[in-house]
């Protein structure tokens, strides 16, 4: 006999109560337990049964931790795949090339101070996008483990590349001439924009895919 909507909700609420905050982790577990119950005439759905079936909160949290690690591998792979695909798209290469030329034009025509401010703004821009998306995700009632992982890659390159600015004086350890500083900007800013764009595309695709599934879930 098929489980009712209320019974499905009961399983889902139990999992939520046990700390599984991600809806895209719960759907698979809910289906597993519901299938098991539907196939067996002897099983009765109650809290005791669910504890016996899923184990304690610790077991479930371990399952989520493990999934997070595995999912990270998936998104890292997608991130690198996105970079490769970028170079297969002539339009994207052309636009990126024009932007680099514009940036170089600014370097040639702006004073060092203005160029430094412009570069800093461009360098920080992906982090602003990352924060806006983080806030948006934070206020979502139902969280997605996939979206959370994909989101990390929007600012991943910033977290790595900002080390170049951390090591240069006045705040860092090493003295750097104006020449070295501008060269660093000229190399790091376009690189950061490229990596962040790829990270954003991974996030966008994940968002589209999981929003569709979530809408389907809510329409049930």
């Amino acid at each position: 006999m098929n489980l009712s909507k209320e019974q499905i909700q009961f399983i889902d609420n139990y999992l939520k109560g046990q700390g599984i905050k991600f809806w895209d982790v719960r759907i698979e577990l809910v289906d597993h337990i519901a299938s098991k119950l539907e196939k067996s005439k002897d099983l009765i759905l109650n809290r005791t049964y669910l504890i016996k079936e899923f184990g304690t909160r610790v077991t479930l949290e371990k399952l989520v931790d493990e999934k997070q690690k595995i999912i990270n591998k998936k998104y890292r792979k997608l991130y690198f795949k996105e970079m490769i695909n970028f170079f297969k798209d002539i339009k994207k290469i052309a636009i990126f090339g024009i932007l680099i030329l514009l940036y170089f034009f600014l370097f040639k025509h702006l004073s060092y101070k203005s160029f430094k401010i412009t570069s800093t703004v461009l360098f920080i821009f992906p982090v602003v996008v990352y924060i806006i998306l983080a806030l948006k995700n934070h206020f979502l009632k139902e969280k997605s483990i996939h979206l959370e992982r994909a989101h990390f890659y929007v600012a991943f390159s910033f977290f790595i590349l900002n080390i170049f600015f951390q090591v240069l004086k006045p705040r860092g350890m090493f003295d750097a001439t104006v020449n070295i500083q501008t060269t660093t900007f000229l190399m790091i800013v376009p690189l950061n924009m490229f990596f962040s764009f790829c990270g954003y595309m991974v996030y966008k695709r994940t968002y589209e895919e999981y929003s569709k599934i979530f809408k389907q879930l809510k329409s049930i």
Binding site: L3, I27, D31, H32, K67, K77, I220
Partner: peptide
């Protein structure tokens, strides 16, 4: 379940498996 799902998720992450989520009655 503790052995099956991590194995499935690993295969998915490696690109060996792909996933299709469908609605079946009152659940996904």
């Amino acid at each position: 379940e503790g052995a099956l799902y991590p194995a499935l998720h690993k295969l998915e992450a490696e690109g060996t498996l792909e996933v299709e989520v469908v609605s079946i009655g009152n659940r996904m």
